[in-house]
Write a protein that binds this DNA or RNA. Structure first.
Lengths: 212, 212
DNA sequence: AAGTTTTATGACAGTTTTGTTACGGGTATG
DNA sequence: CATACCCGTAACAAAACTGTCATAAAACTT
C-alpha cells in the first residue's frame, strides 16, 4: 500500500520483509530515507534503527518509524533509538507524505531552489550562477559544484577525499591532486570579484570555506 | 512550563511573546532549536516559520511547531511551512524532550561537538582553526594538534614523552628537546592573541595548559 | 657565588605539501 | 565536422613545516 502510494508520488521505492533483507536493499539502493516498521520478524525496528545509526554509511539517512502501538513510552523509545520521526498506525498517506517531504527538505537543504550568500558573494542555485556584488562570475560546472558544496558547509575543513566523495560522486577514481587544480580554478574565478580569500588552505588536511 | 522543564534538563532557554520579540531573541541568542506556537499574536507561527526558512542565518535551525489543533490538514501545512516536527497540545514533556533530542542529533550529526574554549581562546575542531577573541591565529599542524591535546586535558602536566606519544603517535623516534621547539612555536602563535601564558612550563616534568 | 641542570630561542637544511602552468584528450555545441 | 570548452594529469616552482643543533637564559644546588 505505502509503496504504491509513494511510487505514485514519484518516489523510487524498495521493499524488504525483515532486517536482513533491508540491510541488503539499503546497501544496494542507497536510499534517501527509510520507513521502518516497529514490528519486524526477528530483529525489531528499534534495534535495527540503532544499528543503522551506528554505521558510518547509514548514519545520516533519515528514518521514519511506523508503529501500531500508541503507548507513549514506546513513542519515546522509538525516537531515542535514532528514528527522526514516527507515525502511529493507522495513518493517512497525506500525513506520511508531508512528513517525508519535511525530512527530505532537512537532509537536502539546497533542493535546487536555494540561494547562498556570504558577504557580497551570492550563489543562486536555481539560476546556477554566481554573483559577486551583482557582477556575474564565470566558472566551469565543477567549480560551481565545488563552491556550492563549500557554501552549504561553511567553516568546515574537508579533505581532498571528502571533496571527491561529495562533489564528484562516491566512486570515482581521480587523483587527489586534481582537487588542487580545481581549487585554483575556483579561486581564479572568485578573484574577479575579490572573494578568493574565502577559499582557505588548511595545510595537511584540505580546504575550508570561511569568511574569517 | 516548557521553559522550566527544558532548563531543568540542562538546556539554555529564551522566551518570546510574539514574532517580533522572537526575532530579537533569535539573532541575539543564536539558538540550536526553536519551539514555535502555532497561535501567536500578530504574525502566525506558520508565517514566522516560513520567514525563518528564507533567511540564511536561521535556515538551518530546526523548528518544532506546537499547536492545539489536531486537524490533519493543519499538520500538513505546519510541516510544509518548514517546521521539522509538530506536536499537538496537550503533549507530554517526555515526548517533547525525545523529539528535541532527535532533532538536535540530526542537525549536528557526528560533529563531535569538539569546540574547546578557554577564556577568549577558542579551538574549533570541525573547522580546524584557533580563534583568539574572534581573530584567527596562524600555526602549523603540529602546533594545532598540540594545542588541541592540551585543551582536551587542561590543568594536567605532561612529560615530553607523554606528549610525543599522544600528539605525535606511539612509535616515533624524535628528540625530546624537539618538544621545546614546538612549545616555543605554539607560544609564539598564541602570543598574537595574548594567550601564551596558558602554556606553562613545569620544571623537571614538562608542560601544562591552565588558565591559572 | 660559582657550578650544574634545565629550558628558551634563533637559525638551518631537508622534507613535505601546496600552487601554478601547460598539455592532450574528450565532449558538447553549433 | 570544426571549434570551443572543460577535465584530469603531470611537471616544476614556491611555500610551509619539521627536526636538530648551538647557544643564551633561567632555575636550582651546593
Amino acid at each position: 500500500m505505502v509503496c504504491l502510494a509513494l511510487t505514485n508520488e514519484g518516489y523510487q521505492c524498495h521493499e524488504a520483509g525483515n532486517a536482513h533483507e533491508a540491510e541488503g536493499a539499503i546497501s544496494y539502493a542507497q536510499p534517501d530515507l527509510i520507513l521502518l516498521d516497529w514490528m519486524m520478524p526477528g530483529v525489531s525496528g528499534v534495534d535495527f534503527a540503532r544499528r543503522l545509526r551506528r554505521q558510518q554509511e547509514t548514519r545520516l539517512i533519515p528514518i521514519i518509524m511506523l508503529t501500531a502501538k500508541s503507548d507513549e513510552d514506546d513513542k519515546v523509545r522509538g525516537l531515542d533509538s535514532g528514528a527522526d520521526d514516527y507515525l502511529t498506525k493507522p495513518f493517512s498517506i497525506k500525513e506520511l507524505l508531508a512528513r517525508i517531504r519535511s525530512l527530505l527538505r532537512r537532509v537536502q537543504p539546497q533542493d535546487e531552489s536555494e540561494i547562498y550568500q556570504c558577504q557580497g558573494l551570492v550563489l543562486e542555485s536555481p539560476a546556477q550562477r554566481v554573483l559577486a556584488d551583482d557582477k556575474q562570475l564565470e566558472m566551469g560546472p565543477t567549480e560551481y559544484k565545488l563552491l556550492k558544496f563549500f557554501m552549504e558547509n561553511k567553516n568546515r575543513v574537508f579533505t581532498r577525499g571528502q571533496l571527491l566523495d561529495h562533489v564528484w560522486g562516491n566512486n570515482v577514481y581521480i587523483e587527489e591532486r586534481t582537487i588542487d587544480v580545481h581549487i585554483r580554478r575556483l579561486r581564479k574565478a572568485l578573484e574577479a570579484g575579490g572573494y578568493d580569500h574565502l577559499i582557505q588552505t588548511v595545510r595537511g588536511s584540505g580546504y575550508r570555506f570561511s569568511e574569517k
